[in-house]
Nucleic acid binder design. Structure first.
Lengths: 107, 107
DNA sequence: TAAAGCTACCTTGTTATGCAAAGGTACAGA
DNA sequence: TCTGTACCTTTGCATAACAAGGTAGCTTTA
């Protein structure tokens, strides 16, 4: 257990970025997202993801449509809006720039 | 002005990482570090850097020696300790892993 | 030689915010 | 009616970074 907290700090702000990436291209609902994240250092819980999805929707980066499940309650399937795609592009570009910066300041 | 705050959030926790990288290999004092950062998205102030340097030294990742300046007060020149080098390696490895994760979750 | 100004060091609030934890509702199928 | 799935909200914490203020020594200049 017990990861170095310094490494954890590096993850701040990434969840939103990753969720946008996961949604981009595919059509997924919350459990799909959690599953994809579970395999990574960004594993998280419903209680974290739902408020994030709601916020992104309020901000107009996502929308969703209800879809029946074969078994169980219906699900919200998410999709990026145009604004969401644009935001994701910004993230990607910024990410690339951070990588450059880090390389350039390296030993 | 006014950068997208979403992008700013991605920077959290990086300053420590970058400072270690800057110090690694060279021998620098605070103003050198500020200068190198100033050219990047991580530009920051004395009031941010000094507490960080003090903390890293308390944690044993850095040490320093006083050195006279040609003009003005003496300066603290910083250097990585063994533990600091190890921490930096961890950061680098983690960083590489984050990049892989992000790629793998991309569209 | 006194004073002003610059450089370098440092500390103490305060803010912002990402994320986790915990608790809660509703509906479907067995 | 019980279990499992899926939705959601509220509360709190930890901490990174900023802002502002403060001390002291060196150099220059009046």
């Amino acid at each position: 257990m017990s990861e170095d907290p310094k490494l954890g700090a590096l993850r701040k702000g990434f969840l939103e970025f990753l969720v946008l990436r996961i949604i981009s291209g595919s059509t997924v609902y919350s459990a799909d997202i959690l599953k994809k994240l579970a395999a990574t250092d960004f594993a998280t819980q419903e209680g974290t993801l739902y408020p994030l999805l709601s916020r992104l929707r309020r901000e107009g980066l996502l929308d969703y449509h209800w879809q029946e499940s074969e078994a169980g309650p219906p699900r919200k399937y998410y999709r990026l809006t145009g604004a969401g795609e644009r935001q994701l592009s910004e993230f990607d570009a910024y990410w690339a720039r951070l990588n450059q910066t880090i390389d350039s300041l390296g030993s």
